[in-house]
Design a protein around this nucleic acid. Structure first.
Length: 634
DNA sequence: TCCTATCGCGCG
DNA sequence: AAAGCGCGCGATAGGA
């Protein structure tokens, strides 16, 4: 049974919808301030909460200490069902675009991203887009401030829509924007949409796969909201020490840190440049280096490293420290972890393949050299787990390639390295060859060692290699490809097809043809990788969904003991604090560490079974119990 | 002045 | 163009 949650005037509507999509009973309307109590009471009935966007509702519940077990995120589900080939011949997919196709993800409340959206420059005398007082509930400041829809909301309101016109190049961010008429937020009827989605699942060619995918995607949205709520423990004092050791004391605004200033002098001296040369200006620096005869074509690190000149050493050091200073320096600390927690802002489903993206704070790019600042609370510890060689294992299982799966299977309980296993089959000579060969197969590498090794891999593991080759050819033909659970790739944009067509013109020049060919191959590499990366993302979603359920079931520390620094409902319980594609960090009371490690492993096994049934493929983890994230070597 | 493109590098 | 996939971000350059 689902309960659909929606805004009804100043109150909140709760309406039951059966698993077949039939409305069950009348809608109840409760006061906004009473929602948390209502939800907490209904949790015991194993209801699945359905709502337009998890970030519109769940943060306020968490703020009231209420955790929910299951949800159905209508925005995320709609996007999957709209695009999937499994649901292509359903009413939902065959209907024209609706307001649900135009929803942009709602940022988590209270963070810098939400603040930036709430603070648009208002001209004096212009009407505010929404009245904060009208919808504000005591505990829902973030939601009330920026993200609640109103019946009269229109273009330019808080319900922003994406404006991109689709895909011309692989690699664009996931969006569903089109430039037809905006239908208006008033058209969002969550109960009707849920009914339509459940019907689309039932009518699809893979209801079981889609049901699992949407459950996992929605569980991911819950987990992301919970991680934002709990935050990653962050020791600002340690971070500051790292910065001071590397850069010198924090400079006044506008000034370079002492170490960078010193290196800038040495760089100028080494190439006889004037004191006005700004090493942050690539064109100027490159020109000055050319004048000094350094012989650099660009300023890329790997290229500079090949050169022999006195400027290289200080320049490389400068670039490293500059990166630390600009990306994760004091400004970052002030903005993203001012109070002992880094509240990362994930964008669930933000990548076309189904991976998560993040916005602001660079949660998915946290450099290794600042991870020392991630320290567990007193009496608590981290359990850090990452899936070893996830993508090649996923490929083996996807292709049902028994030999490749066997190469990654653990023998007598030993934690195996799949690349070593591939070497052991005799297919290739070294672990390095196995690794670059597999990466090349999954990414579409055509040169160097990876291309040399590919034929050997194709001989040893024909089914796995054939799967990625077929995915590449489908993409080159402009077709969709689909992951294990039913997430389909986007189609290339109109200009892609136009370029393809123009290559067939009688008078097409060689340059046009070569551009078309290069574009074709590029899209093929995208679809080749899509099936693997996308299915790996599905494995990770199932993993994280299982972990959050299992952690909750572990219960809490004794009532006598001191709670941790995490906010309720996690102050006495192990909880997820970080997720990075194939890696999780759990923050747990020290006494729970071993139990958590065991559950994280069990969750990985469960994820493998959910995706691949009894196909004999292993997904081993490396698990570390540690006080500091930096001590978990990946 | 604002907006976008480019470079380069962090992560998986 | 490192060698192929997927991202976010900050600084500077350059066009409008």
């Amino acid at each position: 049974m689902h309960t659909v949650v929606s805004a009804e005037g100043s109150g909140i509507g709760l309406r039951s919808v059966s698993d077949s999509g039939a409305p069950a009973g009348e809608q109840r309307v409760v006061e906004a301030s009473g929602l948390a109590r209502e939800v907490a009471a209904d949790e015991a009935t194993h209801v699945r909460w359905a709502w337009d966007d998890t970030n519109n509702w769940y943060p306020a519940l968490l703020a009231d200490g209420v955790r929910v077990d299951r949800a159905h995120d209508l925005r995320l589900a709609h996007a999957v069902l709209r695009a999937s080939v499994l649901s292509a011949r359903t009413a939902l997919a065959e209907a024209g675009l609706t307001a649900w196709d135009r929803l942009a993800p709602v940022p988590p409340p209270g963070g810098p991203t939400a603040a930036a959206l709430v603070r648009p420059d208002r001209h004096p005398g212009s009407e505010p887009l929404f009245d904060l007082g009208e919808v504000a509930a005591p505990t829902t400041s973030g939601r009330a401030a920026g993200n609640r829809r109103r019946p009269d909301a229109g273009p330019g309101s808080e319900r922003r829509t994406d404006e991109s016109d689709g895909y011309d190049q692989p690699g664009g961010r996931h969006d569903h924007g089109r430039d037809d008429e905006y239908l208006g937020a008033g058209d969002l009827d969550p109960a009707a949409e849920l009914t339509a989605q459940l019907l689309a699942i039932k009518d699809s060619t893979g209801p079981g796969r889609l049901r699992l995918l949407l459950a996992a995607e929605s569980a991911g949205a819950l987990a992301a909201a919970e991680m934002h709520h709990a935050g990653l423990p962050w020791r600002g004092d340690i971070h500051d020490q790292i910065l001071t050791d590397a850069l010198g004391p924090r400079p006044r605004p506008g000034a370079r840190p002492a170490k960078l200033e010193d290196l800038a002098h040495r760089i100028r001296a080494a190439i006889d440049a004037p004191p006005t040369l700004n090493p942050d200006s690539h064109p100027d620096l490159l020109r000055a280096m050319e004048y000094a005869g350094v012989g650099a074509r660009s300023l890329r690190k790997w290229e500079l490293e090949k050169l022999d000149h006195p400027v290289i050493a200080p320049l490389l050091e400068y670039k490293g420290l500059y990166r630390l200073y600009t990306a994760n320096g004091w400004n970052w600390l002030d903005t993203w972890a001012p109070d002992g927690r880094f509240r990362m802002e994930y964008v669930v489903g933000g990548v076309v393949t189904g991976r998560w993206a993040s916005t602001g704070g660079g949660a998915l790019q946290l450099p290794h050299n600042v991870r020392r600042a991630v320290v567990a609370d007193p009496g608590w510890t981290f359990v850090v787990a990452d899936a070893a060689q996830l993508e090649p294992r996923v490929l083996a299982a996807l292709a049902r390639d028994e030999r490749m799966a066997a190469a990654g299977r653990s023998k007598d309980g030993a934690n195996t390295d799949m690349y070593a296993g591939i070497v052991a089959t005799g297919a290739v000579d070294s672990r390095e060859h196995a690794k670059v060969g597999m990466l090349g197969a999954m990414y579409g590498g055509t040169t160097g060692v990876s291309a040399q090794v590919l034929p050997r891999l194709a001989r040893a593991f024909p089914q796995a290699i054939d799967l990625v080759e077929r995915a590449a050819r489908a993409g080159e033909r402009g077709e969709k490809v689909t992951t294990r659970l039913g997430r389909s790739s986007p189609l290339p944009g109109e200009s892609w097809a136009a370029t393809q067509g123009s290559a067939f013109d009688e008078d097409a020049g060689a340059d046009v043809q070569s551009r078309a060919r290069s574009q074709t191959r590029s899209w093929g590499r995208f679809t080749r990788n899509f099936v693997v990366q996308g299915t790996a993302a599905e494995w990770a979603l199932c993993w994280i969904a299982s972990i959050r359920r299992r952690l909750w079931a572990l219960g809490e520390i004794d009532t006598g003991s001191t709670p941790g620094l995490a906010p309720a409902p996690f102050d006495r319980r192990p909880h997820l604090v970080f997720f990075l594609h194939d890696e999780v960090v759990v923050h747990a009371p020290a006494a729970f560490a071993e139990a958590v490690a065991q559950e994280v492993r069990a969750a990985a096994e469960e994820a493998g079974r959910l995706l691949f049934g009894d196909f004999p493929v292993d997904f081993p983890l490396s698990v570390a119990v540690t006080e500091s994230y930096a001590d978990a070597k990946d």
